[in-house]
Amino acid sequence: MSVGVAAHITAASQGGPRFNEYLTNDGRRAAENGIWLCQQCSRLVDADDSAYDVVDLVEWKAFAEAAAAVELRGYVVRKGRDFTGLEAKMPELIGEMRTDARSKPFTREIIALSRRVSYNPGPIPFFVYFHEDHDELLAKLQICEHYGAIYDVRRNQVPRWNFSEDFVEYLLGT
């Protein structure tokens, strides 16, 4: 079940956010002038006309309606993440990942270990990131996972992930 609130793209009355004096009263009440948002976003959009312009709201609505139509056909619509934002959060770790990916462009598996541990996972090539080199390494890798940069492939109780192909393309600059 989806719970939402209707907000106006252009204000329903004069003095409201993004008021359009050329729109008729019927046009102000029409579905085309509405956008379905969560409770919090609805309040923000209706309260601040400087942060949300008509063009952005129309674009949001068009995208949401197109995504809903695709999902109704059984597909999953997921927003892609901008890996530059991830890199800004942890430049040293992402820099090391970039160097590794460039040195072995077909390797995808990564393992998080302490330098005091020796580990041989078998014939699959992998990169190792050490706790001693990166403060809060597991937390950073969890954020990488949230961004879709890596995904969990843990086995034998060893924290391990694979790079996503989108992230490798970002790292390699392709």
Rank of each mutant, 00 (worst) to 15 (best):
M1E: 02
V5H: 12
A7E: 00
T10I: 15
S13N: 14
S13E: 15
G15R: 07
G16W: 02
R18W: 13
F19M: 09
E21T: 14
T24L: 14
D26Y: 13
R28G: 09
R29P: 03
N33Y: 07
W36K: 04
Q39N: 11
C41A: 06
C41D: 13
V45K: 04
V45T: 05
D48E: 09
D49T: 00
V54A: 04
V55H: 02
V55C: 11
D56R: 09
D56S: 13
K61F: 07
A62E: 11
A67V: 01
G74N: 06
G74A: 00
V76Q: 07
K79L: 15
G80I: 06
F83Q: 02
T84R: 13
T84P: 06
L86R: 00
E87I: 05
K89A: 11
M90P: 12
M90W: 08
E92Y: 12
L93T: 01
G95L: 12
G95D: 09
E96A: 15
E96S: 15
E96F: 13
R98T: 03
D100Y: 08
S103E: 13
S103P: 05
K104F: 07
K104G: 09
F106H: 15
T107W: 05
A112I: 00
L113I: 00
L113F: 00
R115H: 14
R116N: 10
H131A: 11
E132L: 02
H134C: 05
L141E: 01
I143G: 01
Y147W: 01
Y147N: 04
A149M: 08
A149T: 01
I150T: 06
I150F: 13
Y151A: 07
R154Q: 14
Q157W: 12
Q157M: 15
W161R: 03
E165R: 01
D166Q: 10
V168F: 09
L171A: 03
L171N: 02
L172P: 03
T174K: 06
